[in-house]
């Protein structure tokens, strides 16, 4: 029997967004300040999400960023039991979900701080930040 070697590799980490992607950079930079934001068209009122520098209804570039309150509901979800990604393999089973924010944006995220088997569609959830070096990742937990 050979002696088990100590694994000195760094623990696998969550894949993180690129802060230099120009359409979504303002969103991700705001997460570093604890703000969940989304663009709204000043000309026609459309909520643009995923974030872009133009309106998806009228192509106007006259947009403002607003801050979401962080409350939403689970539109749909799945419990991932098999992944080849080193980080996600390590946390499986985990729940991925489309979250509908109160202000309208629908975003992909994880539902945490609950046994995945107890998650339900329509469940109210609230934002919880997972901090990283230059940004934070918006995750969701059951609303208190």
């Amino acid at each position: 029997m050979t002696e088990a070697k100590k694994d000195t590799r760094p623990a696998p980490s969550r894949p993180l967004p690129n802060l230099n992607e120009l359409d979504t950079a303002p969103f991700w930079k705001a997460t570093g300040e604890g703000k969940l934001t989304y663009p709204v068209c000043n000309d026609c009122g459309t909520v643009v999400f995923y974030p872009r520098a133009h309106c998806t209804s009228c192509l106007s570039d006259n947009l403002d960023w607003r801050e979401a309150c962080g409350r939403g509901t689970v539109y749909t979800f799945s419990i991932v039991r098999q992944s080849y990604h080193p980080f996600f393999r390590g946390i499986a089973p985990y729940a991925v979900a489309w979250i509908d924010l109160e202000e309208g944006p629908r975003l992909a995220s994880n539902v945490i701080e609950i046994d995945p088997d107890n998650i339900e569609i329509g469940m109210p959830v609230e934002l919880v930040w997972e901090p990283h070096e230059d940004l934070s990742v918006p995750l969701f937990k059951p609303a208190t």
Partner: peptide
């Protein structure tokens, strides 16, 4: 940019359809 929003969540292709 759409990938830059979604990739952190670990949505496998199977999970995408499962949803």
């Amino acid at each position: 940019p759409s990938d830059n929003m979604d990739m952190f969540a670990g949505m496998t292709l199977v999970a995408n359809y499962a949803m």
